[in-house]
Amino acid sequence: MGRLISRTAIHARKRAVAKTVCYRAVMVAITVAVAWAVVGDVGDAVNIGLVTNVVKTATYYGYERIWDHIHWGSSPAT
């Protein structure tokens, strides 16, 4: 049975950054739309969307980097 955690990354950091930026762009748009519907002010909605997503972006990137070192659920390297 192989190890669950690896010291080497499965994917390049550039890939993780690209995935993070694309995902967060979509999430900013959704957050701003929901915030606008709730608060009724575009400026407040944009501020809510930007602040929450800056925090979430950093969190998601760290989460991706941790999972990139876990073998569980991925096919072995060839």
Rank of each mutant, 00 (worst) to 15 (best):
A37Y: 04
I30K: 08
A33V: 12
L50Y: 00
I48S: 02
R24S: 09
W36E: 03
V26M: 10
M27E: 08
R13V: 13
G40A: 03
C22F: 14
W36P: 06
V38Y: 07
V17G: 08
K14R: 14
V42M: 08
V46A: 06
A16K: 13
D44E: 00
G49K: 02
V42G: 05
V28A: 03
M27L: 10
Y23W: 10
A45D: 02
K19V: 14
A33R: 12
A35K: 04
V42Q: 05
R15A: 11
A29G: 12
D44H: 01
I48G: 03
V39E: 00
A12H: 09
V38D: 02
V34F: 11
A37W: 09
A12S: 13
A18R: 15
W36V: 04
G49C: 04
A33K: 11
V26Y: 10
A25Q: 08
V39Y: 00
A29T: 12
Y23K: 09
V51I: 04
A18T: 15
A29K: 09
I48W: 04
Y23M: 11
C22T: 14
A18V: 15
I30N: 08
I30P: 08
V26W: 10
A29N: 09
G49L: 04
T31L: 04
N47L: 01
G49W: 05
K14G: 14
T31M: 06
A37F: 05
V28N: 03
G49S: 05
W36H: 12
A29R: 10
R24I: 09
A45E: 05
T31G: 03
V51L: 05
V42Y: 09
V51A: 07
V42L: 11
V51W: 06
A35Q: 05
A45P: 02
V42D: 05
V46R: 02
A37E: 01
I48M: 06
A16R: 13
V28L: 05
A16V: 14
A25H: 09
A18E: 15
K14F: 10
A16I: 14
D44T: 00
K19I: 15
A12K: 10
V51H: 02
T31I: 05
R15Q: 11
Y23G: 12
V34L: 12
K19L: 14
K14C: 10
T31Y: 04
A18S: 14
K19N: 14
L50K: 00
A29S: 12
L50Q: 00
V51R: 02
V46E: 01
T31R: 02
C22D: 12
Y23F: 12
R15I: 07
V34P: 04
R15N: 09
W36N: 08
N47Y: 01
V34R: 03
R13C: 09
Y23S: 13
D41R: 07
V26F: 11
R13P: 06
N47F: 03
M27A: 10
R13D: 14
A37G: 10
K14T: 15
D44N: 00
K19E: 15
V34C: 08
I30W: 10
R13N: 12
V46F: 03
K19R: 13
L50G: 01
D41K: 06
V42S: 06
A33S: 15
D41W: 05
V26K: 07
I30S: 11
K19C: 12
A12F: 03
G49I: 04
V26I: 12
W36I: 01
A35Y: 05
A29C: 11
A16C: 13
R24Q: 10
K19D: 14
V51M: 04
